[in-house]
Write a protein that binds this DNA or RNA. Sequence first.
DNA 1: TCTTATGTAACTTTTCGTGTTGCATTTATC
DNA 2: GATAAATGCAACACGAAAAGTTACATAAGA
Lengths: 134, 134
Amino acid sequence: MKRNSRLSLALHTLGHMAVDPDKTQTSAQIAGHAGTNPVVVRRVLGKLRDAGLLTAEKGHSGGWRLARQPDAITLADVYLALDESIVAPARAEDAPTCSVEHVLQRKVATILEEVEHNLVERLAATSLSEIQRH
Amino acid sequence: MKRNSRLSLALHTLGHMAVDPDKTQTSAQIAGHAGTNPVVVRRVLGKLRDAGLLTAEKGHSGGWRLARQPDAITLADVYLALDESIVAPARAEDAPTCSVEHVLQRKVATILEEVEHNLVERLAATSLSEIQRH
DNA sequence: TCTTATGTAACTTTTCGTGTTGCATTTATC
DNA sequence: GATAAATGCAACACGAAAAGTTACATAAGA
């Protein structure tokens, strides 16, 4: 699997679920289809579960399925559930060493925050039901 | 130094140069001030030199200085010179495995490209001379 | 000619995401 | 109840990428 592929894995899985929302899939099945490991799948989908996008049933005949209708899950929901923060560095604000440094840094940081916000807005405009129109 | 700090290092250095554009600084001086290594400094500033933002003089009394006036260097110039591509993954388009997967993926990819473009636009609105107003 | 600077290649170290193993827990089925 | 099949989670191994380091060639002023 390639780097920072959590979003890819999530979209791939959710895409299939949106096509056939009544089918429950196990981590092993999903992993097989995505070419990765069941534990990795549980790690990623676990975040989606915590965000209320998926439900996970334990035990026999358990597995994963959508917690809502596809049209009620936007790409922003997925993105935010994964704590991706592609743009803004999710920074652990380090000590301001010298004043000159941080004038430009803060300018850039502000712009990145605005752009991050803009990204989420755009992602919110598309839901999983988009997949059904193709 | 922290991860992906090339932009930080570049901004820090350019910030100081914008305050005092007549002073030539060596890699060692810059590295000392930025808490890193002279070779790392040359690697990062070398990209800014290639982009025409800085000049580097070899030999005795050599060093780095701005190649243009501070107001003629925007944050976008710096960002682009470093090949950062924070938002869009600068992707080596991998093989489209299954069709369902790539509907959502492409949607996201398109949004990321738009957002990346938007980022550069915003960065272009600020120049290094901003530092002189503080 | 010597000193001081950049330019660059090669290697090491660090960091972080992914992959893997192992086991506890839960739940349907026999 | 026992068993099989699933998730939950912790701990460790692996690998790639960025940063740091060493070494040396090259250039230019003193």
